[in-house]
Computed example of a mutant assay.
Amino acid sequence: MGTKYHERINFIKDKLSLLLKDIIAADELSLEAFKSDDANKFKEVETLLAKIGLIGDEIDNEVIKTFALFGPEANELRFLITFLKMTNELISIGGGVKKYARRMSEHSKSGCTIEPFKPSILLLHKSSINALKYILECFTNIQECNYEDNYRKVLVEESMNDDLFSVLEKEILNKIIDEKELSIEYVKVLGSLRKLERSCDRSVNIANLMMYAKLGGEIKFFQ
């Protein structure tokens, strides 16, 4: 493949990197908003991610144009398939961050006692951000990245995230028993926290996609 093809690949990669940076920035802002119970910061998160769907469509269109113009061979085809699937995962993560910010802002006004869960929620949130940062670190240094090592690091964060979510789930279910009148609100809190858990699952999918692009084999998504 010629220079123009590689220019397009780098162009798409750069767009994906920018999208990932925006999602991480919004995710970190939502973490700060939760720490300080700042409704304005939660609103900023939604503003930051308002156009991610359109950005995702633009990236997908660039990938499709590259298919049409260059008819890539097998190894190049893997990267283009990866970009398409990766965009979908990133848009889902960004959408989850946006919903998390909106809902956590609402929970603070609902009468739920979230304070006892705060240390675990902060750790849960940090692990989801760490997983995304590993992805970005590898993606922006694609030539030198050790894809298998990156996958393992993301998997460690996802495992920690799963354990934290399980602990929070038990604690919140106990709270539902103690405060039956707020049971629906606590169930909603649990649903919001699941957005952080799903973010880590999707990061594992992206790390796996990156390994597939580089090494071949089969695409296996974490469910």
Rank of each mutant, 00 (worst) to 15 (best):
L124H: 11
N130W: 02
K126A: 10
I172D: 07
L164E: 11
A50E: 14
E106T: 01
N40W: 06
L49R: 09
S110G: 09
D60G: 08
N150I: 01
K118W: 10
N130C: 05
K85Y: 08
I91V: 15
K109R: 12
K98E: 00
N88R: 09
I129Q: 11
V45A: 09
K98T: 01
N75C: 02
E148F: 00
D178Q: 01
L69W: 07
A50S: 14
I129K: 10
E46L: 11
H107L: 14
I176P: 00
V154S: 04
N141M: 04
N141K: 14
I177Q: 08
A68K: 13
E46M: 15
E76P: 01
I52C: 10
P119Q: 03
E44L: 14
I135N: 08
S128D: 06
D149I: 01
A101Y: 00
F117T: 06
E73H: 05
A39M: 06
L84G: 08
L122M: 13
G71N: 15
L90Y: 11
R103G: 02
L84H: 12
L122K: 11
N141G: 12
S127C: 09
V154R: 03
S128V: 04
G95M: 02
S128M: 05
E115N: 12
E179T: 01
E171C: 01
L80P: 04
I177R: 05
A39P: 02
E144L: 12
V154T: 05
T82R: 10
S159C: 05
T113D: 15
I129D: 12
P72I: 02
R102N: 03
L122Q: 10
S120P: 00
Q143H: 07
L155A: 12
R102C: 02
H107Q: 11
M104T: 02
A39L: 06
E115V: 15
L69K: 13
G53R: 13
K98I: 00
N40T: 10
A50G: 06
L173D: 07
E148L: 01
N75K: 13
K126R: 14
I81M: 14
I121Y: 04
G111I: 13
P116Y: 03
N130Y: 05
A101T: 00
Y100Q: 06
A68W: 09
R102K: 10
K99F: 04
L80S: 09
F42R: 03
K99W: 00
L69Q: 11
N40R: 04
E44N: 11
I135K: 04
L168I: 09
I135P: 02
Y134S: 06
L80D: 08
I59G: 04
I172P: 13
C145M: 10
E58G: 05
A68E: 13
F117G: 06
A74G: 03
C112L: 15
